[in-house]
């Protein structure tokens, strides 16, 4: 019952945002528990889950915050962007309105999140081919214009869910590694507990520092 928390090298906080009903919670449950629920309850406030993956031989623990999509909640949920190093902005490929609202979500991030946050655009429900309302090309172009990575996913049939999280976490990892090599990252005779943790609060403190500078494009 008290499973010992796994060891990890990095802890990255990632937020899931986007309109209500686009499938954020299912992306999360597919990624963290390999579960999908056609009738999952609406998210109230925020919900939270974690999963660790390997990146470049290191254990990266993703701490993922799933937020409520309804506008009314934004006053509260914006507080949860604090310390996030990544954001997955999700829309529903079958509902054009949810894609149009991506701009608003980007603004939301601009207003409340760290300026260097890594953002990925995810068009979910790509299994609904016959209902597609947002073309892949259009979204891809939009993502390029805004220097976002882009992927289409389906939480229902699992398409690209792993890839989406793997990509964004790798992108974050690379940025962190790039900027960190000087400060003891390789300390050969490092002590036992050399775990590097990107913590919620650290991030804020280091905001003024060079963390993830110039890295919108990842690599």
């Amino acid at each position: 019952m008290t499973s010992k928390e796994e060891e990890y090298d990095f802890l990255f906080k990632v937020v899931l945002i986007g309109d209500s009903g686009v499938g954020k919670s299912n992306l999360l449950s597919r990624f963290t528990r390999n579960e999908f629920n056609l009738e999952s309850k609406s998210t109230i406030g925020v919900e939270f889950a974690t999963r660790s993956i390997k990146v470049d031989g290191k254990v990266v623990k993703a701490q993922i915050w799933d937020t409520a999509g309804q506008e009314r909640y934004r006053a509260i949920t914006s507080a949860y962007y604090r310390g996030a190093v990544g954001a997955l902005v999700v829309y529903d490929i079958a509902k054009h309105m949810t894609y149009e609202n991506v701009e608003r979500w980007l603004k939301e991030l601009k207003d409340h999140a760290d300026t260097n946050i890594v953002i990925m655009l995810a068009g979910n429900k790509c299994d609904l081919r016959h209902l597609r309302a947002v073309s892949t090309e259009e979204a891809k172009k939009f993502a390029e214009q805004h220097s976002l990575s882009f992927i289409e996913t389906s939480a229902l049939d699992s398409t690209n869910v792993e890839a989406a999280f793997q990509n964004i976490l790798t992108e974050i990892y690379n940025i962190v590694i790039q900027k960190a090599p000087a400060d003891g990252g390789q300390g050969g005779g490092g002590s036992v507990s050399e775990t590097k943790v990107i913590k919620i609060d650290d991030q804020k403190d280091e905001k003024s520092g060079s963390k993830m500078k110039c890295c919108q494009k990842g690599n």
């Binding site: 309850k41 406030g45 925020v46």
Partner: peptide, 19 residues
Amino acid sequence: NSVDYLQFAFRWMNNLLMR
């Protein structure tokens, strides 16, 4: 452990513990 009450109790209040 930096757990903020709002993080878990928001839903308790918003949905009157119905979840």
